[in-house]
């Protein structure tokens, strides 16, 4: 699948942002005064920047409001609702922390739950697609949620962040391990896709068209897969190991910044792989994957 920069930025930034808002909403991190302004502001900024980045790849972004209409059937529509609902419901708690209004913490709980709910709906957009076997997996929501919880913990300065980073490492290894065999487990080949395996062994004689098209660009993206193993290593080091080490050896602000920057950079690499390594079954018709 084509790793569109807008979608990678969106899912990484908004994932980390909603993760941070989850901790702030639940009061696991409860800054006050201008510190609260900065922390809540960071959470809101990441979530909103991410959400607006997601509109960049739309063909007709001026009609984006219509995406709120199909929540009964579409995970993308549900994501629109949960994200806006989380941001609206958390606003009183954010103002209360900043201005010292003293709202009971319970006011932040529904928004905190919806913040995680948003990450879940994002993950289901990918996990629901049967035509991409690597995504159509229960580990996909687990991976997105762990990313949000670990990234949010790093950004919220939680003492247990290294533990969650370790969990994230295990989840990443698991989704890569299981994901690598997913296409083969679906047992779709050129022969089964065309139904011509009932006659014999099928190979591509001549392509349907000599030039590129939307399908080849969007769904049959094969560029850069040869570096996948190196990128996986880099993603593990940057996303999990370096931030955990930085947070373990120091509680200073520099360790916090270094951990946050490393984690987000690594998350971008991991998310790039999530798209670039995913193979759509339509590639079979072209003899490609």
């Amino acid at each position: 699948m084509h790793p569109a920069p807008s979608v990678i930025l969106f899912s990484v930034l908004s994932g980390a942002g909603f993760g941070l808002l989850f901790y702030l909403g639940f009061g696991l991190a409860h800054p006050s005064g201008w510190a609260a302004f900065l922390w809540w502001g960071l959470g809101y900024a990441l979530a909103v920047i991410g959400l607006s980045a997601s509109t960049f790849h739309l063909g007709n972004p001026q009609r984006a409001l219509l995406a709120f209409s199909q929540w009964r059937s579409s995970w993308l529509s549900r994501e629109a609702w949960t994200s806006v609902a989380a941001l609206v419901l958390l606003a009183p708690m954010a103002l209360s922390d900043w201005l010292g209004l003293g709202l009971p913490r319970g006011f932040g709980w529904p928004g905190a739950v919806l913040a995680l709910g948003t990450v879940f709906t994002t993950s289901m957009i990918y996990a629901q697609i049967k035509a991409v076997p690597r995504w159509h997996l229960w580990l996909t929501p687990v991976m997105f949620l762990t990313f949000a919880l670990a990234g949010g913990a790093v950004l919220a300065g939680q003492s247990f962040a290294p533990v969650l980073l370790a969990v994230l490492l295990v989840v990443l290894l698991a989704i890569w391990q299981v994901g690598d065999g997913q296409f083969a487990r679906r047992a779709q080949t050129l022969g089964t896709a065309t139904g011509l395996d009932r006659i014999g062994t099928v190979t591509v004689f001549e392509q349907a068209h000599t030039a590129g098209n939307y399908l080849l660009r969007e769904m049959i993206f094969v560029v850069g897969r040869k570096h996948a193993q190196k990128l996986r290593g880099l993603a593990m080091v940057l996303t999990c190991l370096l931030p955990a080490v930085a947070l373990a050896i120091s509680t200073g602000w520099w360790a916090f910044v270094a951990a946050a920057v490393c984690h987000i950079t690594g998350a971008l690499a991991a998310r790039w792989l999530f798209f670039a390594e995913a193979e759509h079954v339509v590639g079979l018709f072209y003899g490609k994957r």
Partner: peptide, 10 residues
């Protein structure tokens, strides 16, 4: 789109 395949029976 019209693809062309070569199919080899046993």
């Amino acid at each position: 789109r019209v693809h062309s395949y070569a199919v080899q029976p046993i």
